[in-house]
Simulated assay, not measured.
Amino acid sequence: MTKTSAPSDDRATIRLAMAQMCSSNTHARNIETVAGLAAEAHAAGAELLALPEASGMVNKDLASARLSVTDEARDPFIAACRELAAKYGLWIHTGSTPLAGADGGRFSNTSHLIDASGAIVARYDKIHLFDVDLPGEVSRRESDRYAPGAGAVLAETPWGPFGLSVCYDVRFPHLYRDYAHAGAKILFIPSAFAMSTGKAHWPTLLRARAIENGCFVVAAAQCGHHDDGRETWGQSMIVDPWGTVVEDMDKRIGLAVVDLDLSKVAATRQSIPSLANERHYSFEPVAARRRQKTA
């Protein structure tokens, strides 16, 4: 796990703005949207703006996407987010945006955490890729387009450690357990969830990750019908360490501003000390035991 080295004084509260977007297939339109969201977040006194997965671009046409997707240094969306962060003195979690990668021409699905001066303090490449066969739907192979990330990233901030992840990562609880053991107070799970899985699984998974780790979960989401023809579930949510839904944006595009009391993390973990109670154990499959008995 990579840990960033930004100083932390563990401020007790954070005013957080969470955005629900319906991102376009061009950087320019999404930059315009995020500029408005950042201005609104600043006016509301927010200290951090959280964006959804693929906030910089939603474009399933690979040939078209290749004309726009570039590396971090030249990416116009990341540059715009850095400028907005510095302009408003606002931390920005970009959710993610596609970047050019070195793995056989595949992109990376990369999150950035940007501080109030506009500096990038953490980067995270989505580890788990959405390669699934949903009943009645076309097979989806995110790995055809994206290369997987190789490591978890814990970002140190003035509010304490934040754990970074993206969308399908939510189905792999060991990632968040590692973050919790490392002291994470907020888990970011930006998404562009599919309609069928969103309806069936999204709120339950988010509440589970919050409850089992005693963390806040901040899950900004894509929502609606996108220019490239796809549709995403939405329902951006913030869940507290007890599993209480603090904010549920349902299908509303725009911004929600919430004050989070981060002392709830320590209080919840003291009340239900599952991290301390966790035991390591051996596991031997039943079939292996049967083979030993018959040997």
Results as ranks from 00 to 15, higher is better:
A6D: 12
S8R: 12
D9S: 15
A12M: 12
A12P: 08
T13R: 15
I14C: 06
I14K: 04
R15G: 02
M18P: 03
M21H: 04
M21P: 01
M21K: 02
C22E: 05
H27M: 10
A28M: 09
A28L: 11
A28G: 05
N30V: 04
A38P: 00
H42T: 03
H42R: 14
A44Y: 04
L51M: 15
A54C: 13
M57Q: 13
V58D: 07
V58I: 07
S64A: 06
S64I: 00
D75I: 00
A80M: 08
E83K: 10
A86F: 09
W91R: 03
H93G: 04
A100L: 05
G101F: 00
G105H: 13
H112I: 00
L113C: 04
A116S: 14
G118P: 09
R123L: 08
I127K: 10
H128D: 10
F130P: 00
D133N: 05
E137T: 01
R140C: 03
S143M: 07
D144F: 04
R145I: 01
L154V: 12
A155Y: 03
T157N: 11
G160I: 07
G160Q: 12
P161C: 12
F162K: 00
F162A: 02
L164F: 13
S165W: 07
S165E: 07
D169R: 07
R177T: 03
D178N: 08
A180G: 12
A184E: 13
I186V: 14
L187G: 03
F193V: 09
A208H: 06
I211E: 11
I211G: 02
N213K: 01
G214L: 04
C215A: 12
C215M: 07
F216Y: 15
V217T: 03
V218K: 09
A221S: 15
D228I: 02
R230T: 10
T232S: 14
W233V: 00
G243M: 11
K251M: 06
R252Y: 03
R252W: 09
G254F: 09
G254S: 09
D259M: 10
L260Q: 07
L262A: 02
S263K: 11
K264Q: 13
P273H: 10
S274Q: 10
L275W: 10
L275D: 08
A276Y: 02
E278D: 07
S282E: 13
E284C: 01
V286I: 05
A287K: 06
R289I: 00
R290S: 05
